[in-house]
Amino acid sequence: MSKIARSRSIGSATWRAVSSQPLIPAGLVLIALFGVIEPNFASGSNALNIATQASVLLIAATAMTFVILTAGIDLSVGAMIFLAGALVTSTWLQSLPPALALVLVALCCAVLGGLNGLGVAVVGVPAMIVTLATLQIFRGLGGHITGQRSVIVDDDLRFMGRGDVAGIPLPFVVAIAVILFGTFVLRRTVFGRFVQAIGSNQPAAMNAGLPVKRVLIGVYAFAGLLVGIAAMVQVGRLGAVQPTLGSGFELTVITAVVLGGTSLTGGRGSVIGTMIGALILAIVENGLVLIGASAYIFDIVRGAVLLSALLLSGIPQQLLRRLRADSSSTPQSART
């Protein structure tokens, strides 16, 4: 007769999520390294600087974490940021109060994301193909709205990218709110559990009677909403919408998610991990400028980070599993 031991308390689940990040040591080493070379790096104002610069990535990467957890991918993120920015500058919204205009744009992004989801869930086209197509559509629409020009954004539509709450830059406050909300949805809600279940084993989810299609559409729509918010912050910070806005950003976002330990095959990952991945990318970019690295070093380092993210996504999972198994090695049940 076997017994099931209560394995861990709730609090340790958070600890596990954090401790399973192989990046935390790497991040600390980076911070120490930059800090030694350039004392300004470790200053408080630079920390706020990094936080602000990471915020758009943090929000978009939280969105991408949900998508990748379902074993999907969203390549249209950068294009959607551009399209959202274009909508913000469009004349249709000029007459509305700024806050309402931004809400409308975010909802519009949720609908566009939902279209991605429809393609993936209902039509059954691979996510990479669907979102590659919508990438072009979104870019085209955005280009049509802006006429491929640099469009300056009105000051009253820029509030998401400026200002602060008790000294903390508003973009970072928004990013933290999104991360907390994302973590809550993923860890504590039925929807979040379904997301992970579908990514882990879609046939099993079907057989268990889970509303797979609805959840998938919901995931892409949710991602669209968050990307819309990311776009508000980005446009607010930049003060202009330009044809290359968000171009190639999806790769940075995917890099952050993968760096954060989310498996590209779905089912396994966390928003907290993504947050750490995104922060490390922002720290690297900031640190390189501060230590005065040559422009060519930037590309080398960016490539190395991407490569290590890809390597990390494979190898250390096994290592981690072993480490985790070690910490709970005592067999908790007697065999019959």
């Binding site: 350039e38 300004n40 600087n49 980005q234 910070r237 950003f249 970019e285 930037f298 590309d299």
Partner: peptide
């Protein structure tokens, strides 16, 4: 200070902020 941007407005924004910080 030099800041490479790849003609990316975001990199220009962040790079300028970082350089002003340093």
């Amino acid at each position: 200070a030099d800041v490479p941007t790849d003609w990316d407005p975001t990199k220009a924004l962040d790079g300028t902020s970082n350089a002003l910080e340093k």
